[in-house]
Amino acid sequence: MDVTKRFNRIVAIYFQLQAKPIVRAQDLAEQFDVSQRTIYRDIKALEQAGIPIYGEAGTGYGLVEGYRLPPTKFSREEILTLAAAEKLMQKFVDPDLFRHFSSVLNKIKAYLRYSDKLNVNLLEENMLMGSLAHRFNENVPSALSILFESIAQHKVVNMEYQSSASVKPVHREIEPVGVFHQGNYWYFMAYCHLREDYRQFRIDRIQKIQLTSIPFTKEHKPLSHYLAKEDPSPTTTIRISVPLVYARYMEWERSYYGFISEEITDTGVIMTFECKNMEHEFARWYLMFADQARILEPEELKERVKELLANIQL
């Protein structure tokens, strides 16, 4: 059993070496839940099997440039996963990036057996993904692709960006750090030369975008570093009580409003939030369930909801 487990691990390490320019022993050890010494032995086994690996302990490993094996045989589950991934990509990325992904997938499909191609076609015909409106600006179909290219090449991007607070787009020169998806939108973190600081942007608000040949002026830390910074905005503790039958309808959006925890009682569900925008965002969201939910605290939220109700024009 241990021999089989080690063999599977060594094979998995080899595929990672094929897929990445540099693989660190520390990352492999964490992934496979073994010691770094074990990873060193696995690397040695690959070298003894004739795999040309460069690098050393403490830095990272990679395959000698130009060394690649012919395309491997895919399992049935892997093939169907690729087909499903294409559908997901069609929904969640911009048209330009999806076109590139489909091109790659078609090249992979060319190596499949006839029966596997039939399975892929059958899945594609019977898997539908509803589109989400306004995820990208239709006039800028390659925004995500350009940002990826900028990050990979360390090249400055010029863009016209219209924030929620601006009447018209503002020209920005930025150095993108990373891209992430949250809620229903794609966001990216970048160093903005206009603001001389790091800023978070939403991709669908880009009106124009162009990759330049200008190299980055700074060495940027990984995206996780900037996302991990604490938001200095104060929060308000909110507690509401909702009947159990209605609480499930709130699960989809409550995380956007600072949801912390819930307690199921005999009378329903008590939800606790730490909200950064109680007066405008939370109060208006609460109105969707106001005929069933009850505010436990704070009193300020009760007064704000009453104000909104008083201003409703029928």
Rank of each mutant, 00 (worst) to 15 (best):
D266W: 01
Y14I: 09
R76Y: 02
A29R: 01
K20I: 05
Q313W: 13
E196K: 08
D27I: 08
S131K: 04
V3E: 09
A110C: 08
T235N: 04
R199H: 05
P71K: 01
Y40I: 15
S164Y: 15
M288C: 09
E300Y: 04
D291I: 07
L97R: 04
F32C: 01
E175P: 02
M250I: 06
F74Q: 11
E300A: 11
H193K: 00
R199N: 03
Q207S: 15
K117M: 08
Y249L: 10
H181I: 14
P141L: 12
T59R: 10
N106P: 10
L211Q: 03
R248P: 02
K107A: 10
Y246F: 09
P21D: 14
V120I: 11
R6C: 01
A84K: 03
P21K: 12
T212H: 06
S163R: 08
K302T: 15
L194D: 06
L17P: 01
N121K: 13
T236N: 09
R9W: 10
N137C: 04
E279N: 13
L97F: 11
E138R: 08
Y256E: 14
R202Q: 15
F92Q: 05
L211D: 00
D42T: 02
L128P: 01
V3K: 14
T265K: 08
K208I: 10
Y286N: 02
V140E: 03
A133N: 05
V167Q: 11
R172D: 07
E262I: 13
Y198A: 05
